[in-house]
Amino acid sequence: MRRYFFLPLTLPFLIFLVLLLPLLFILFASTITIAFQKLGLPLPVAFTLFWAALIGSFVNIPITEIRSYGPIVKVAKVSFFGVTYPVPYVDWGEQKTIVSINVGGALVPLSIVVYEVVRLLILDETFLLTRMIVAILVSAVVSKAFSRPVKGLGIAIPTFIPPLVAVILALSIGAYNKPLIAYTSGTMGVLIGADLLNWDKLKELSAPMVSIGGAGTFDGIFLAGIIAVLLV
């Protein structure tokens, strides 16, 4: 009787995977850089912002601490015939939730939006600035409506909602600068509607830490703006 053993990863597939990862990273970086350039940012600035968002996605800056009282799962140790067993039980006590802000997922998009606002003010583009503010408010209302607190995790929102809303707003009221409307409404709409407007629900999450901006580069706030800009 013959027996055949198959390795989980064959050598050719492993080599292909190693070669594919750098190509995917280059494609991902190029896509985001193009999106930044469509906002009118120079190539060096766009490239710098990409790396700032990527590296900053791993950095969370604590800004405050929320204390609440509720059921807490604790573990007691019980010895039986010399053997110690962990026994979980529910107790009532104080819970601490550290609220932090993610550099790549919140501060980088916020800095871009602030730059665009200042640029529009200098150029006296009140027409476009008014439309941008309206788009952000509409996107924030929609994000608030679709966001839900997930216990132990954070505030969740369907991934496709923010980019879709941003694209619709850009095509309808974006005038001659649709990428700007798409990016600002896609990023600030989620930041305001999903995160800030749900601030009072953070203490109900029972999470040790919640991050405004979430997972940074791969979070809804960042990707919503990038995807929306690319679609318009």
Score class of each variant (00 low, 15 high):
Ile63Arg: 04
Ile101Arg: 01
Thr64Arg: 08
Leu49Phe: 01
Phe47Ile: 12
Phe80Gly: 11
Thr84Gln: 08
Pro44Ile: 02
Thr97Gly: 04
Asn102Thr: 05
Ala76His: 14
Pro71Ala: 05
Trp92Ile: 01
Ile72His: 04
Gly70Ile: 05
Pro71Met: 02
Leu41Gln: 00
Gly56Glu: 02
Gly70Ala: 10
Ile98Leu: 12
Val78Gly: 12
Pro62Trp: 06
Ser68Leu: 02
Lys74Cys: 09
Thr97Val: 10
Pro44Tyr: 10
Leu43Phe: 15
Phe47Tyr: 09
Thr48Phe: 12
Gly56Leu: 02
Glu94Ser: 07
Tyr69Arg: 14
Ile101Phe: 01
Pro62Thr: 03
Tyr69Pro: 00
Ala53Thr: 01
Gly56Lys: 00
Pro86Gln: 08
Leu41Arg: 01
Thr97Met: 05
Leu43Trp: 15
Gly82Pro: 04
Val90Asn: 11
Glu94Tyr: 04
Val78Asn: 13
Gly93Val: 02
Gly70Trp: 12
Trp92Gln: 06
Val87Ile: 14
Val78Leu: 14
Pro71Trp: 02
Leu49Ile: 01
Trp92Gly: 00
Ser79Val: 12
Tyr85Thr: 08
Ile63Trp: 02
Glu65His: 03
Phe50Cys: 07
Ala76Cys: 10
Leu41Tyr: 02
Ser100Tyr: 00
Ile66Cys: 01
Pro71Asn: 07
Leu41Ser: 04
Phe47Leu: 13
Pro86Asp: 15
Ile101Gln: 01
Val87Leu: 14
Gly70Asp: 11
Ala52Trp: 00
Ile101His: 00
Pro86Met: 07
Pro42Cys: 03
Lys96Met: 03
Pro71Leu: 08
Val59Ile: 15
Pro86Ser: 10
Gly93Cys: 07
Pro71Ser: 09
Leu43Pro: 06
Val73Pro: 11
Val87Tyr: 12
Tyr89Ala: 07
Ser100Ala: 15
Ser57Val: 00
Pro86Asn: 12
Lys74Ala: 13
Val99Gly: 03
Pro44Leu: 08
Gly70Tyr: 10
Phe81Thr: 06
Phe58Gly: 02
Ile98Glu: 10
Ile63His: 08
Val87Ala: 12
Leu41Gly: 00
Tyr89Asn: 11
Gly82Met: 13
Thr97Pro: 09
Arg67Thr: 09
Ala53Val: 00
Val45Arg: 07
Asn102Cys: 07
Ala76Asp: 15
Asn102Val: 06
Ala52Gly: 14
Lys74Gln: 14
Val83Ala: 12
Val73Tyr: 10
Leu54Thr: 05
Ile66Asn: 04
Pro71Phe: 05
Pro71Glu: 11
Ala52Ile: 01
Ser68Lys: 04
Gly93Lys: 07
Asp91Gly: 05
Val73Met: 13
Phe58Gln: 09
Gly56Asn: 06
Lys77Gln: 15
Phe47Gly: 03
Glu94Asp: 00
Pro88Asp: 14
Pro86His: 06
Gly56Tyr: 00
Ile101Val: 15
Ala46Phe: 07
Ala46Arg: 06
